[in-house]
Amino acid sequence: MPETRAAQRHKPSQARARETRERILDSAAQLFSAHGMAEVSTNRIAAHAHMSIGALYRYFDDKAAIAEVLRARLLAELEECFTAAVIGSLGLPVRESVATSLRIIMGALVDRRHLVRALAADATVEGIGFGGLERRLLLLTRAYLLQQLGPLPDDELDIKAFVMVNAGLAASLRIALQPPAGLDVDGVISETATMLGEWLGARS
């Protein structure tokens, strides 16, 4: 059935709206990464996106709303990387699977480190400062541990998952966001993987 003229007019309008919204988000991400959130205003974002402040406010109420969208996207990307790391390492020896997962996660963080640093500095929520990411990673880690160790009491499984997630993420975030001077990064990853692998192996 042929589209009505109204529908034909509406589609380009929706496409332009999506493009404008993405331009705002891209500009904000670039500015947050370069200068930090505290130094970036909505006026500055609008100027960087080559639009008026009034146009920006048609899409976002304030800077916090823009940051929330960027944070949600970042969470989704990191969760996707973490999921791929866990699935890809199933069947490997524990030490090797942990090292593989850490390298993938760290690579994802390094690629986005400036934005991660900017958004984390502004966050006040629990865990590593990214909303529900820790909770989602705990669920994935529980599944991994069940595959590696077999059935366990829920409380023991929860503790093990918490230790795995927080030890792994602490190392990944520390190295990705502020690489330790004078230390071999791959050596740090290997040592962390050995520590966690031996800890799990002793309990398997």
Rank of each mutant, 00 (worst) to 15 (best):
A72D: 13
A47H: 06
F32E: 04
I24Y: 00
L56K: 04
R73M: 14
S27R: 11
A29Y: 09
T42K: 01
L25E: 04
A55V: 14
S41E: 09
S27A: 15
H48Q: 12
R58A: 09
E19G: 00
A34H: 04
E39C: 05
R21Y: 10
R21V: 06
D26S: 09
A84K: 13
E22Y: 03
L70G: 04
C81G: 01
E79P: 00
R73A: 09
L31P: 00
I53E: 00
H35G: 02
A49Y: 04
F60W: 12
S52R: 12
A29K: 08
L74N: 06
E22D: 06
S27L: 14
S33L: 11
S33R: 06
F82Q: 03
N43M: 09
G36Q: 07
H35R: 13
M37A: 00
T42Q: 03
D26Q: 13
L25Q: 03
R73G: 12
I24T: 11
E80D: 11
T83A: 07
A49W: 05
T42H: 01
A84V: 09
C81W: 09
G36H: 06
I45G: 00
E22H: 07
T42F: 04
E68T: 11
Y57D: 01
V69L: 14
Y59P: 02
D61H: 08
E79N: 05
K63A: 04
L25C: 02
T83R: 03
D62C: 09
D26I: 15
R71C: 11
A38E: 12
A46S: 03
A38S: 06
I45M: 06
I66W: 07
D62L: 14
D26C: 05
G54E: 11
A47C: 02
C81T: 15
G36R: 07
S41H: 04
R23K: 13
A72Q: 13
E22Q: 12
E19K: 08
E79V: 14
A46N: 03
F82V: 02
I45R: 03
I66V: 15
A47Y: 03
T42R: 01
R23I: 13
E39W: 01
